[in-house]
Design a binder for these strands. Structure first.
Lengths: 191, 191, 191, 191
DNA sequence: TATGAATGAGGTTTCATTCAT
DNA sequence: AATGAATGAAACCTCATTCAT
């Protein structure tokens, strides 16, 4: 009898959407995309299976929404760093900034790595991450070129891979991984 | 009919087992563990579903067998390298040897990385890879210590992570990845 | 605010009801009763799902309302033709009148034929169409009896079936169906 | 331990397939394609849902198999009639033959008519029935042309539609429908 | 050892209908 | 009268595994 106002509905939608995204990220991250059922997401989020589909029309779309939302947070943080690295200090700041981003949402990056190696997810990656990663690499490439590196592209690729490896290790091992020490070493080697 | 001798039977059994392992590795590597059905393995291997279970009592056991077999090949190859690295040359040889091993069975290492990030597979990893990886790290740790590195454990961890990242990149991108150049750069930085 | 008068409310209600009926007829006709969701009707009509149920308490009731409304239009048109056919001219006029009715609402008659063969819909048909069809047949039966036909009931049944078949063909094939030629031939044979 | 022989397996497959086809035809015919669940088919046939899919990979494929199998029976019967109708006797024999075919499998033809009006089924019809129906019409067209009919195509279309209507009436009303009398009348009018 | 028919739980998704932070 | 979030049963289909007229 008392219909909800439009504002109330928007509020509900926003909160539930957020709840679903968070819950699904958690579960996808923990059990993998295929290892997580829509059932389990709905149960964990405390909503019905049917309602889940009122928010995301398929499991795949839900995954995509999670990835995009996380990337938005990521790019927002990265945008606060300078686009050009001129000093070793800039370089160090950029690297440490990246790590801070990673640490701020380890669940998300676990999901990222768990999808990275699954061919079915490749189209998603092409669409969502590649454009971003290329820009990201370019900044470092310029840095190395300015430093007189003869193969700046190769160095930036090595740096990217190294960061991947370090992040992966940290995500897998948690606080057992000596992240700070390793980072210092990394910065020393690349700066 | 001429009954097969026991030896022949064993031979047949070994070949079938090998066939199943190879086929399953291929499919697990391509579609992921959960994304591959026992049905598809049996079809691809030209073996009946029932018979598959005569060789491996469950999907999980099959996976474990694959991982172990691959690791055996790996250790055999690694054992041919010296246990102690004394010169920069030794170091370079070891790294390049590792890469050769990786390149000799990219399918296997794709599977490795696709499982690495899945918690359900953690027990398997603990059981199968950890003992080996620790030994592997120790060799490099000694090398760095001998070179006067103050934190040889950290450096070897960074090296390990870097190799992980490089391998991951190479496995994902294939020949697009400038593996040789990147490796040269890596060796230069760590040796 | 100026409250709506009761009359205005009734007017609005009537219009919405009409809108729903038209939309649902269109969709049922195009996708079948089971192939059409209440969701799709509400969306297509630009009405909320909840409100749909304020007008029709269930999908089945909605269908029934559609069928009845169409039949009312039908009978209104038919009532404008004479109840007794005395000449061949009357006969021809009656047939052509029928066709005109059909052509005036092909969507409705498509739905009619799509329900005709579904047993679940039989009760509806018994209730809604049978009384009408019987009267409809009687008129032709009298015509044939007056012409001296020994089995006027049989002839009128054949005529009814023939019209069914012709209509069905026309509804399925659209303008590809040579309706006019076929009708001429039909009239020639039966008159 | 005692594996079934290949022959036994073939036998099982053939029987089960037949059982499924028969059961599904019955249910599709009675409740419509959309109104019948795979669950209900499996239950009615006394087999598990999973096994159903060992025989037919989808509901749609099952439907197609049913339609094709019925059509094969149909064409076999029709092939026993002459391809060219020269006398009124031939014509009558052909018509009555058709009716016999229809009566031999009313369940099938009920399904036929229930699908005829559903747009989703149109591709199936195009594929399965159209080629056959066209040939079927041609035979009658020739007959009418030979008789001196100026518009043999129109007449054969009217005949086709009339048969459709008569069959539909018979299928809906069952033995209440005076099929024999109607047929006599039909033959009288068209021969 | 080898086959493939069979099972049943569980996966994703749809849908008529109800109800109100 | 009007909204759309919410429910839960049921739809189609897949899959690891078992078993044998």
């Amino acid at each position: 009898m008392s219909p909800r106002t439009e504002k109330q509905n928007l509020e509900i939608r926003k909160q539930k959407e957020e709840l679903i995204l968070t819950t699904a990220l958690e579960l996808f991250s923990q059990y993998g995309y295929l290892g997580t059922s829509m059932q389990s997401i709905s149960k964990e989020a405390g909503i019905s299976k049917g309602n889940l589909y009122n928010y995301f029309e398929s499991k795949e779309v839900l995954l995509e929404a999670i990835l995009i939302q996380g990337l938005i947070q990521f790019t927002e943080l990265l945008d606060s760093y300078p686009k050009e690295l001129v000093s070793e200090n800039d370089f160090e700041t950029a690297i440490r900034g990246n790590v801070r981003v990673l640490k701020s949402n380890t669940t998300y990056w676990k999901l990222y790595f768990s999808l990275l190696t699954q061919p079915q997810a490749q189209p998603l990656f092409q669409k969502i991450f590649n454009p971003f990663l290329e820009e990201y690499m370019t900044v470092f490439e310029s840095y190395f070129r300015n430093k007189g590196d003869e193969k700046p592209q190769v160095t930036s690729m090595l740096l990217g891979s190294t960061l991947d490896g370090v992040f992966l290790g940290y995500l897998m091992m948690g606080e057992q991984y000596p992240l700070d020490d390793v980072l210092n070493n990394l910065i020393e080697k690349f700066k």
